[in-house]
Nucleic acid binder design. Sequence first.
DNA 1: CCTAGACCCTGTACGC
DNA 2: TGCGTACAGGGTCTAG
Length: 271
Amino acid sequence: MPELPEVETVRRGLCSLVEGAQIVDARITCRKFRILIPEGLEQSLKGRRILSIGRRAKYLLLELDGGGGRLVVHLGMSGKFFVRNVGQQQGKHEHVTLRLADGREIIFQDARRFGLFLPLTEEHAASLLEHLGPEPFAEDFSADYLAQSLARKGQAIKIVLMDQELVVGVGNIYASEVLFRTSINPATPARDCVHKAAELVCVIREVLQEAIEAGGSTLRDYANASGDSGYFQHNFKVYGRAGESCVVCASKIESIRQGGRSSFFCPACQK
DNA sequence: CCTAGACCCTGTACGC
DNA sequence: TGCGTACAGGGTCTAG
């Protein structure tokens, strides 16, 4: 499901809905995720207040009070993290339920279980977060930095943009959209894109920012923390549009496989 | 080092 | 209707 804009949308929603709320009960019905949820987490969550909800890359970080430390949550491909009001019906694959004092529940639901839900130990902080590249909106994601990084890589630019060690938050959808807006063919070796580094920095920020402002993209059944859809999918220029006409030149949008994922591009606009 | 590919898992869409 | 296949927004590990 989620690239940076979707995760940020979820974060903002949760902040406004449950920041400061107290967890009165926790229920975990499946522990088998990318990393096993440790036994006994339920007990350690009881009575904790959620002080703040942050984000690093596509990871959500929930700060708890009372020495509860932090929870790290990743949505993988199919994960959802949302608040359910009293009386709303339960769905399938609701693996973690945090009941709040007012009766609402925070639900972590993830059909494919590629996500994770963990107390953030030192070890996990090191293995999950330490190797991550700069945030796209941070100053250290600069044109110079990107130019130097691209110069060292012969891999296709599409693959490189999705590498979370280079810059975090760009996934399969936004990589295709960024390359369309910068007129770069997704198969171009990264080192041949050095001259476009400054433009890439701008466009990556622009695309992600627009998507955040649209409340993320909703494909299939993704929803934000309140269960609402995003709107950015209506702004896709190439993603998921194979065979349709390019909005600029009317050529047919093509689809190729790169690193096991689909890439979409206009063969005329993106040489 | 670097790369391509398999793999984790379930749901859905589509062709036969 | 049912079955088989391919594919889905991510990340990690392995083999070459």
